[in-house]
Simulated scan of single mutants.
Amino acid sequence: MSENQEKNRRCKSCDENMRISPEKLERLIEIATRERPLAPEEQYLQRIEHCRDCSGLQFGSTCRYCGCLVEVRTRLQDSTCPYPLAPRWE
């Protein structure tokens, strides 16, 4: 696959410069989950493991299919997996 084709497969607004520091990620998680119901810890751990094993994970933090931070999305009770063929978690 050419470099141009690979770029087209990525989230349009993401590139190598989009890496997020652990401190900033924690702050974003805090803000995003402040007033929303959280998934139980066991469910979160199962979800994040699926995301970490997914080919759609970019830069160790971002979902290629929806552009979200997987550490946030997997913590929210009402979230679903955006994998296009079949969700990897509910």
Rank of each mutant, 00 (worst) to 15 (best):
T62V: 14
E49I: 08
R10L: 02
L25Q: 02
T80N: 15
Q43Y: 15
Y65K: 07
W89L: 07
K7V: 05
E35L: 15
M18D: 10
C54M: 03
D53F: 15
I31A: 10
D53Y: 11
L76I: 05
N4H: 15
R36T: 13
E6P: 01
I29Y: 06
R10I: 00
R64H: 05
E26A: 07
C63S: 09
R19Q: 12
C63D: 05
R73L: 04
E16N: 09
A39P: 03
T33Y: 03
I29E: 03
P87R: 10
Y65Q: 02
A32Y: 04
G60H: 02
C14N: 08
C14S: 06
D53W: 09
A86F: 14
N17L: 04
I20M: 03
L38I: 09
K24T: 01
E41K: 13
E6L: 01
S79D: 09
S13D: 08
R19A: 10
L38Y: 06
I20E: 02
R75N: 08
S55Q: 14
L38F: 07
R52S: 13
M1H: 14
E90T: 11
Q58G: 01
P84H: 07
T74Y: 08
T80W: 15
A86I: 15
K7H: 08
V70W: 01
R64C: 09
S55A: 13
Q43C: 10
N17A: 08
N17Q: 15
D15Q: 11
R52K: 10
E42F: 10
L69Q: 06
C66W: 03
L38S: 07
Q77A: 13
R34Q: 12
R52T: 13
C81M: 07
T33Q: 01
E16A: 04
Y44E: 04
C68G: 11
D15C: 04
E23L: 05
T74K: 05
S61K: 02
M1I: 12
C54S: 09
G56Q: 03
N8F: 01
E90M: 15
N17R: 14
L57M: 09
P82T: 01
L69T: 04
N4R: 14
I29D: 02
Q58K: 06
P87G: 11
Y83E: 11
N4I: 12
C51F: 06
R27H: 12
D78T: 10
M18P: 05
N4L: 07
L76C: 08
R75G: 00
G60S: 02
R73T: 01
E49C: 11
L85M: 12
E30V: 03
R27V: 12
V72C: 07
R52D: 10
C14F: 04
G60R: 02
E41S: 11
S55C: 12
P82I: 07
S21I: 02
R47V: 04
R34L: 06
L85T: 11
I20K: 00
V72P: 00
C51M: 04
M1R: 12
L45Y: 09
S21L: 01
R9M: 13
E42D: 15
L28P: 03
D15M: 03
E49G: 09
P82E: 06
R9E: 09
R10G: 04
E90Y: 13
F59M: 06
T80V: 09
Q43F: 14
C81Q: 08
Q46C: 13
S13Y: 07
V70H: 01
K24E: 01
D53R: 15
E26D: 15
Y44V: 00
P82K: 06
M1N: 10
D15K: 08
